[in-house]
Amino acid sequence: MRHAFALRIGPIGFRIGSDWRAPIDQLRSLYRDYPAPQDGVADYTVRLFARRPWRRWLRPSVEIGGDYMLPEAAPLPLRHGLLAAEMAMNLQMALGARRHLLLHASAVERDGRAVLMTGVSGAGKSTLATLLAVRGWRFMGDEFALLDPATGLLHAFPRLISLKNAAILAAEAAWPDARMGPLMAATPKGNIRHMVPDARAIAAMDQPAAPALLLFPRYGDAAAVRQVPPAEAFVRMTQASTNYVALGEPGFTAMTRLIADVPAVAIDYPDGASGVAQVEALCAAL
């Protein structure tokens, strides 16, 4: 394709091709500290393309393509091209991943031990992960965590952090030095701005960690902690995995081992500072 860029996030290589220069320039800039795919061969190809040649210039509309696609993926205007690329990369992972049990979760690590956080949208898994990173935890990712069925270890996937609406201002205040992508106003998901994870998260992204705590956070209520019984944790984690069924027996083995070995806890937290304190108290007690 006319414009192309390849990179690796954790163990996964991507190749992104585009009919337009702008989204590739943005990716190249934001992912400048990331390595190239292993052996120069990407795991997944993503395409940003114009449905008709004149749509490269006339009301340019970015169609999303790639190795794995959903038929209902609607095009985005060119000014949201970076979002289109990020959505397409996520989609390749969600539909294509087979090497790892893919968990829709955020993860942080300290002393080789990882906390996995998962929950419905708005539960705060992303916010908690970034706040814990400020406290010295290593940020492993806020969208997907990759569990290796062969080793039981968790691999980082520190892609760009996708900030929405109010979280944009909060993040800009908390990390004045962070590198930010363009502010994309009025996307289908509201205002979006991408933030580059901190240098340590990128430098350490090839180091896996042993899962030590499964956390199901919920934002809004008074602080509370509840042990989650194994069957409930099993169901919640399978629902948080896009490829549990596709993996077959290795997925079953990895998931039952995770549930058997790692305590599962649900917390309610009223604000970020309380949430961080709750997580650190739980980890100290492990």
């Binding site: 292993q38 052996d39 061969v41 795991d43 087979r98 090497r99 596709a246 077959g248």
Partner: peptide
């Protein structure tokens, strides 16, 4: 290695 990993995934997916 990268090719072997991708094709290994494809073999597992085909078996499933």
């Amino acid at each position: 290695h990268a090719v072997e990993a991708i094709l290994g995934d494809a073999r597992a997916a085909a078996e499933q």
